[in-house]
């Protein structure tokens, strides 16, 4: 077994050319245009919640329903948003990312096998 993980493949592929290809640039753009804003969003939302829990005790103590407080509501909304972002990412990947990535991978693998 080789200890450099990259040495066993890729001999027949010009990765720099591939990196600048329209197809790959498009894939990277699609990926980043989803994961970066989403990551920023959930981190901001999480820290907004942490700061509220840490410094806005009165607000978090507001009773929403029965004994159910604003703090519990916002906490449970963190669960909801985590589940929702997960589901959204899966659906986005299946629809937009996987077809593009698979197309490039298949082409490169065929290209490598042909050499």
């Amino acid at each position: 077994m080789s200890t450099t993980p990259e040495s066993d493949i890729g001999t027949g592929i010009d990765f720099i050319k591939e990196q600048n290809s329209e197809e790959f640039v498009e894939l990277r753009k699609t990926h980043r245009s989803f994961v970066f804003p989403m990551a920023v969003f959930f981190l901001l939302w999480y820290f907004a919640y942490v700061l509220l829990a840490d410094y806005a005790h009165e607000f978090m103590s507001i009773k929403v329903w029965g004994n159910f407080t604003m703090g519990l509501l916002l906490g449970l909304l963190q669960f909801v948003s985590t589940f929702a972002i997960t589901a959204a990412y899966v659906s986005f990947s299946n629809r937009k990312l996987d077809p593009k990535a698979t197309a490039i991978r298949k082409r490169l693998e065929a290209q490598e096998a042909g050499e």
Binding site: E6, D8, I9, G10, I13, F15, I16, E18, Q19, F24, L27, R28, H31, A101, I104, R105, L108, E109
Partner: peptide, 14 residues
């Protein structure tokens, strides 16, 4: 190497 890592990471080639 840098190009290879980026292409591999997103496409899974290799």
């Amino acid at each position: 190497k840098s190009a290879e890592m980026e292409v591999r990471s997103l496409t899974g080639v290799g």
